[in-house]
């Protein structure tokens, strides 16, 4: 059971949150992106062994959609994409 830092509420139990998945690049302009780029954006999800930027929805708390960096090897919530330490 992780502790997830919510910018409004502080650290809260993982069970208060819904997982929102890794953060993908910004949505491409659907009129400008090539088919390949669009499909790539849709289907390629970051899945690193190490820090990943991901979204969580504090659905049972204040309702904030927040972003954290979590090290997939350790569950440590880390600062930015730097070393998990």
């Amino acid at each position: 059971m992780m502790l997830i830092p919510c910018p409004f509420c502080g650290h809260r139990n993982e069970s208060e949150f819904a997982y929102g998945g890794p953060v993908k690049p910004d949505r491409p302009d659907p009129h400008a992106a090539s088919d390949e780029d669009w499909v790539d954006w849709l289907t390629t999800v970051p899945n690193p062994l190490g820090p990943v930027e991901e979204r969580w929805w504090h659905v049972k708390g204040c309702g904030t959609w927040l972003t954290i960096w979590r090290d997939t090897r350790t569950h440590c919530v880390v600062e930015g994409s730097g070393d998990a330490g």
Binding site: A18, G20, R55, W57, V59, G63, T64, W65
Partner: peptide, 9 residues
Amino acid sequence: GHMEELLQT
């Protein structure tokens, strides 16, 4: 969740 995610992110 869908609406809030779009609006907030």
